[in-house]
Amino acid sequence: MKRGLHIITGLGVGGAERQLPALLRRLPLACDVVTLTNPGAVARDLRAQGVRVTDLGMAGSRDLSVLPRLAGLIRAGGYDLVHTHLYRACVYGRIAARLAGVRAVVATEHSLGARRIEGRPLTQATRALYLATERLGAATVAVSATVAERLITWGVPAGRIHVVPNGIEPAAFRFDPQARRAVRDRLGLPPGAFVVGGVGRLVPGKGFDALVRAVGTLPEGVRLVLAGEGPQRAALTRLAARLGAADRVVLTGEWPDVPGLLAAFDLFVSPSTEETFGLAVLEALAAGLPVLHVTCPAVDELPRREAPGARRVGREAADLARAVRAELSLGARRLPVPDAVRRYDVDRTAERLMAVYEAAHVALPEEVGLP
């Protein structure tokens, strides 16, 4: 193999999106990237490291005009392998790759929850379309054993599934006191405030409404900073105001400098009820933060001793408030980086992904018709 193409739904600041720059710096394969829509901050990062990024400007989920354009781009690029990420890109990318004559297609399933996929409710139609196009690829990558089990339950053959966890660059998240001061000043946080933080898309499955309610019951010195965008932003703003906590809840929108943001926090909370991996939790652990999480396969699938700074808690606002109060009593502190962080080093992820690529290139799937 000499050339690969990564196809992703969008390149805003998200876990799946932020994986690409780190991976492409390590994969021994020349790769280009296509985003179906939203060429955001991650697209700028990729271009800065010399990766060619093409935005197809997809108008919506049913914009079928993207198929011939994507197939033509794949054909013209002479790619040996196509790797798709996120639901829409997996569906359209697999079909386009087959139309272009590329059969070595790998798809990573990043966000398949028990009831939601990428923050949206799962439907029978969603599942049927996914399964029909999954047959067009050579392999499907699950980012955790939890996701692999869900894929098998859906009907994806176990032999086609490879578990390749997400990876992080531990050194990038090392605590920086100067960044802490700069980010806190930029966010207007009072000196001495105890800052609870969360990172992720503002969608119902992430549970940020429960976290806002929890913080609304805590002392005035506690601030909540949520970094991310999504359809729940306005509702979360209204909720904070209704609780009388509008001045204590900061919604930053997309924040590309995640290491700087984590330096500004004193406690990281992931209230997500349907997490498929938990990259943000690992990044927080790499920054030395104590972590509270409702679900996090990246940690939950490991022995407890490998992530002593992470504690699993209940999903309700009262559970979160009680857990935050316990951390508040211990004061702001930094913890040693745990073994879990080193286990998920992105170098290991790149090595395992290359093994999947090689297998997909050699053992191509049996011929199937387009759905």
Rank of each mutant, 00 (worst) to 15 (best):
Q232I: 02
T295E: 14
H110C: 01
T273S: 03
C90A: 10
A97R: 02
V281C: 09
V42I: 15
A171K: 13
S65P: 12
V249E: 10
I161M: 09
G369K: 11
I7C: 06
V156M: 05
A89K: 05
P157T: 04
P68L: 04
L36H: 01
E109K: 02
V82Y: 06
A340N: 08
Y344A: 01
T54R: 14
S270V: 00
V102T: 10
G207H: 01
A234D: 14
V53E: 03
V66K: 04
H85R: 10
G288D: 07
L136C: 03
G200C: 03
A100W: 06
L330W: 14
A97V: 07
V33N: 00
R150L: 14
S272F: 01
V156N: 11
V163I: 15
V147I: 12
R201W: 06
L267D: 04
A41Q: 12
L27T: 00
R47Q: 14
Y357G: 05
V212D: 08
V102E: 01
T237R: 09
S270Y: 01
R25S: 15
P28K: 02
R343H: 13
S144W: 08
A317R: 08
M58Y: 05
V362Y: 00
L239A: 10
R135E: 10
V294H: 03
A71M: 05
E254L: 12
V13H: 04
A307L: 09
L187G: 08
V313H: 06
A246C: 15
P170L: 05
G15E: 03
L218D: 11
P68N: 11
F265H: 08
I152S: 10
P28Y: 02
D300Q: 11
A125S: 08
V258G: 15
P191Y: 02
P297C: 11
V249W: 07
S61T: 15
M58H: 11
H293T: 09
R312W: 04
A71N: 09
L335A: 07
A210C: 09
G230P: 07
D339R: 14
V196E: 03
S111C: 05
L328F: 03
V203D: 07
L224M: 08
H162C: 15
R213K: 14
R116H: 14
H361Y: 13
P297D: 12
H361G: 14
R180K: 13
P170M: 03
L226P: 09
V42D: 03
P365R: 00
E274A: 04
L282D: 04
T108L: 02
R342S: 13
A321N: 13
A139S: 15
E301S: 07
Q178D: 12
A41M: 08
L67G: 07
R47C: 08
A286L: 01
V156P: 09
G137Q: 00
A59L: 15
V34R: 00
M1F: 13
V212S: 02
L226A: 11
P365T: 04
I152M: 13
A323T: 09
L282R: 01
L189N: 03
G78F: 04
F268M: 11
G260S: 10
R26F: 07
F277I: 00
L370I: 07
T54F: 08
E229W: 01
T126E: 04
R223L: 09
E220Y: 06
A360N: 06
R342Y: 14
A210V: 07
Q232F: 14
I161C: 12
R94H: 08
G288V: 01
